[in-house]
């Protein structure tokens, strides 16, 4: 028989606990990407001479495969005396990779702020810090939340790459089950269905969030 329900139910708890690792990696990775991306975008505006350097850096990160970047952090850092365990190295690589994408999203958000807002802040003698915190960021962030959400989903779908450095997440667990039992159909299909379900749910969430934000900003 091609599909064995009993076997599928047997491995479900194991996969479920591995899914938690995948979700953890996603959340930590995205927190890193969102904050580092914001820092990159803000530094670019606050310190103009860094603009070129940051562009090149972003282009470098976006032009090379995430898998190689994960290997790089995992294998090359120990040569400099920084030994990271697989989960940390993997999440760090994912976070930095997506920070490059997020910084471009933030940049688009900042570019959409009307010039007058900056000028008014200068006229009111607000410090750069206050301008960013109280004037620019509250206006720039809501419109880009859906774009950031899309990257959250994309990042989630990249977490199986962590299996390449043997992090016990969903994909790696499915592979181990497969190699122990010689049955790949059930674990691989369940992993696929899990990703499909999560992506569809998050896509629906992002769409409703988008509607909500549009209503709030279109006063």
């Amino acid at each position: 028989m091609i599909w064995d329900w009993a076997f599928a139910f047997e491995i479900l708890p194991v996969l479920a606990s591995a899914a938690i690792v995948s979700i953890e990696a996603t959340l930590i990775g995205f927190a890193l990407a969102a904050s580092l991306g914001l820092v990159l975008a803000v530094v670019r505006i606050a310190v103009p001479w860094t603009g070129w350097t940051i562009s090149v850096l972003v282009e470098l990160i976006r032009s090379t495969p995430l898998l190689i970047q994960i290997f790089f952090l995992y294998f090359v850092f120990p040569k400099f005396g920084v030994v990271l365990d697989a989960f940390t190295a993997g999440v760090l690589a994912i976070g930095i990779h997506y920070a490059a994408y997020c910084s471009e999203v933030y940049r688009a958000g900042f570019d959409n702020i009307h010039r007058g807002q900056w000028e008014a802040s200068v006229a009111l003698n607000l410090s750069a810090w206050t301008t960013f915190r109280d004037i620019i960021i509250p206006q720039a962030i809501p419109p880009i939340v859906p774009a950031l959400g899309n990257y959250l989903v994309a990042l989630f779908k990249e977490t199986p790459l962590l299996s390449a450095i043997a992090v016990l997440e969903l994909m790696q667990t499915a592979k181990i089950i497969g190699s122990e039992t010689f049955r790949y159909t059930e674990p691989m299909t369940l992993v696929g269905l899990f990703f499909l379900a999560m992506s569809l749910v998050s896509a629906a969430l992002i769409r409703s969030l988008e509607g909500l934000l549009n209503r709030r900003t279109m006063r």
Partner: peptide
């Protein structure tokens, strides 16, 4: 689009 490339 809903599942990741590696899974496929």
């Amino acid at each position: 689009r809903g599942t990741s490339a590696l899974v496929q």
